[in-house]
Design a protein around this nucleic acid. Structure first.
Lengths: 124, 124
DNA sequence: CGGAATCCCGTATGATACTG
DNA sequence: CAGTATCATACGGGATTCCG
């Protein structure tokens, strides 16, 4: 995203495909990022996992105020599919499942902290 | 957000109020940030304004593939209310309105570029 | 215990028309 | 030109119940 003058003005976030997501008419990785971490619960889930993971499903649910099974379950699936969350199942009875963050989140954390800092300045 | 051990584990994004948004049970500036720049069109609008602004309403609309008046108008209002977009109206006939980004966006840009770069790595 | 299935609702988004 | 008004729809999100 942002500012680069060549023959055609295009943003700097390294647009790639022409699917209309970016105003430069191309696919923007930034839009991808917003899809990956967007939504009502994903940030909170990542935060909880980063602080307390590995952690079991019901413990995680208890840590996130107000989340339902539907939302937690679907968000975890998407995060796992995007490679941000790791799911480990122990086949004992009763079943034990532990969730944790992956290496991808390590690089994400400082960026999110900058975003938070930015928000504090613009919305004090 | 993320990792800090005191008496109670809390994240590092400087949580403040107890409204249940953060897993640490408090209001997180990061969540605020996601509300400000989240949604289907805001990033694209900011990007277009940053590249081509100041720019008139209909020109802006033309640059953003597929956006409707309803969405562009409401998104611009929210962005203006949050201090990211400036609206300047010239009372001539026909009316001329120009939109541009504010100083707040200047600090946001490098963060968004990092996010885009991160996304390229995790979702190549 | 760790979810899945089902049903339901509100809001975000969209299409179309219209106006100061 | 720069939007608003109105109506329609889709999807995110939620409550409840049930299952291996």
């Amino acid at each position: 995203m942002i500012i680069e003058e060549t023959d055609v003005k295009k943003c700097d976030a390294d647009c790639q495909n022409d699917n209309g997501i970016c105003p430069c008419g191309q696919k923007c990785p930034l839009s991808t990022a917003m899809e990956i971490i967007g939504g009502k619960w994903k940030i909170q889930i990542l935060c909880a996992l980063q602080i307390d993971g590995p952690i079991r499903y019901n413990e995680l649910k208890a840590k996130i105020n107000g989340i339902t099974n539907t939302m937690l379950s679907s968000a975890l699936k998407k995060l796992e599919a995007d490679g941000l969350v790791r799911r480990k199942q122990y086949n004992v009875m009763p079943v034990r499942v532990e969730y944790s963050t992956t290496e991808a989140v390590v690089n994400l954390v400082p960026i999110l902290m900058q975003l938070g800092k930015w928000a504090k300045e613009v919305a004090p």
